[in-house]
Write a protein that binds this DNA or RNA. Structure first.
Lengths: 344, 344
DNA sequence: GCGGTAAATGTTAGCGCTCACTGTTGACGC
DNA sequence: GCGTCAACAGTGAGCGCTAACATTTACCGC
């Protein structure tokens, strides 16, 4: 016996029928037990479970996906970047999905153009994913999404609020408004803004919130310095702003830009916060250790992730939440980079 | 037209037989074309391709995975963290895999203990992944890997060099050696070290390199301040070090710890680099904008990613590279946080 | 024109699972 | 005692694909 099998090189993984044979039931009963269907006698259930354990049986998800047309996989599409926001979000989502028994297949695209987004969606559909999440913070990304068939559950994060599709977003406008108002209340005449790239919805929302706070206070709305989220771009903008004595308060669209601006100010002898106040956005873990520790706005990525998953799960179960767009509210974190202006 | 199809509830996706029928061939020929087998007439090939395009056919990867026992999916296991190194690595790997036609299924584990690693491996094997990559920078992670059956191609990144399993790593020892030597050559008597968590191989390697450089130069080896990669821990260590006038040079195990130390020094009136020189590790994009811009060590994550993928692909194809452990060499980036000590 | 060979294509049998059925019990009411 | 119905279990088909083998076609030299 041993010799006969010894020549067999392939040790096939146990299948459902093997479990069934061992437990003395049909494969269908095994299936029922594994999918926790009702109408299985407790005694049978235990016998099957024992057999599963004895054989070390693990269901073949490919086979299940083939017959059901759905895998227990959620496809995520994200931009290729190590930006703090998107990466944190991705990590949070992976955790949330794992907790619900879903694996996450991530597809990074070089840029968020319609072509690469469409390709990524197709790839995920080939894989028969149960749903798709797109971290689509730019206008170009959002366009491509219009072409995705409605039968694929799809949730966008930080996408275009106007599109009316299921989406989860952080209330950027509110966060920026808080930040700007905080500077204004400290006594500054007005607040200058170093924005993110204009094609990002996040950046646009932050601009809006900043502008609204200014207008509500009757403050002048100065021209915007446009950055690209990097510290380098914040530095360039900061160099310009440092030369203008009337600039006493700056709201940067993220912490790294704020860091660049801070550096530029310091280099030019404009001390922060004595002469210039700065507020960032993101609350990257290091921002508490900048010089000075940075006042900033924190987004709860964990909340975004779980909300997204809930929405997606609802969509998969055919819930009529087509237009749902839950919003997560960010929060101001006060540290030491804001002070009243000297003139006061 | 619209009305006719509107009543049909299920619009089945085209399958291989549909393509075959349209092209006037057998489904097997379609399969051959799609898998670029030889022995298909050019004319037939084109006819099949045209049919594929006309129907918008996309192969069902679940079906293929079922019959071949392998999906075009690579499973990655990583720790739940937004640490710069692991996240950058992950992103780089996803890009590299996509270029080779592989999707990446990511499983984040709360901590790198044997239990969660084993569970993650099982989950990936259920999915019939073609291979597994484990970012296993801690000793606890490495233990769990011993139990994985040999037939699953598995490559470790930054794991235990002693284990002898396929692994890709950055030469931390070399990087730390360079950094320390750089400080020594600037004229410092010795170099103090703020290390990473001791159970991380990266941290251990950096300690070794630091110590070797010191010993080679005949310098005293001061006690280590242990951190946990965060700026906060660097700050705490920095506060201690700032109080000791003999400390003129610090090598921090990563940039964020360096930032924390930098802040502590500044707060205590010890200016960097005039009174104290600091070197970090990682070259996070913002480190060029710290005050002062940080001298650090850059790791090429792209190279780690492509090397890992090559190794894994080799393993999948049955290559006899069981013991391969390619090493990527990091590079010193000189900026402004290092200067000769005052006494000189 | 004929066998022989190689190239090109077709046929058949599953992979391991779920779905939609069809049986088989046993408890219960009248 | 018989029908009824629910609870439980089994049977067979087929999801869409690839592997192995079977068959047809094209082409060559003599």
């Amino acid at each position: 016996m041993e010799d006969a099998t010894a020549t067999s090189p392939v040790v096939r993984e146990p299948a459902m029928t093997d479990v069934a044979r061992l437990a003395g039931v049909s494969h269908q009963t095994v299936s029922r037990v594994l999918n926790s269907h009702p109408n299985v006698r407790e005694q049978t259930r235990l016998r099957v479970l024992a057999a599963v354990k004895e054989l070390g049986y693990r269901p073949n998800r490919a086979a299940r996906a083939l017959v059901t047309g759905r895998s227990q996989l959620i496809g995520v599409i994200a931009q290729n970047s190590t930006l703090y926001g998107p990466s944190s979000l991705l990590a949070a989502f992976e955790i949330a999905a794992a907790r619900q028994g879903f694996a996450v297949s991530v597809h990074r695209v070089p840029e968020l153009g319609p072509a690469s987004i469409t390709a990524a969606v197709e790839r995920h559909r080939d894989e028969r994913v149960a749903g798709i999440v797109v971290i689509a913070p730019t206008a170009s990304a959002d366009e491509a999404l219009a072409g995705v068939p409605a039968e694929v559950p799809l949730v966008t994060i930080d996408g275009d609020p106007e599109r009316g599709a299921p989406m989860v977003a952080v209330d950027q406008e509110h966060g920026a408004h808080q930040a700007t108002k905080h500077l204004l209340e400290a006594g500054h005449e007005t607040v200058w803004h170093i924005s993110g790239p204009p094609d990002w919805f996040d950046a646009a929302g932050r601009i809006q919130g900043w502008r609204r706070a200014l207008q509500e206070a009757g403050a002048e709305v100065p021209p915007i310095s446009t950055g690209d989220w990097t510290a380098a771009s914040g530095y360039r903008a900061g160099q310009m702003l440092a030369r203008m004595p009337e600039v006493t308060a700056v709201f940067a669209a993220n912490d790294h830009q704020a860091l660049g601006a801070l550096r530029a100010m310091t280099e030019r002898g404009r001390s922060v916060p004595e002469q210039v106040s700065i507020v960032g956005f993101d609350d990257v873990p290091e921002s508490a250790y900048y010089s000075p520790p940075l006042t900033t706005v924190r987004q709860d990525f964990g909340a975004v992730a779980t909300t997204t998953l809930d929405l997606l799960l609802g969509l998969m179960n055919g819930a009529e939440t087509k237009g749902a767009q839950p919003v997560i509210t960010p929060e101001l974190v006060r540290r030491e980079s804001v002070r009243a202006p000297l003139g006061d």
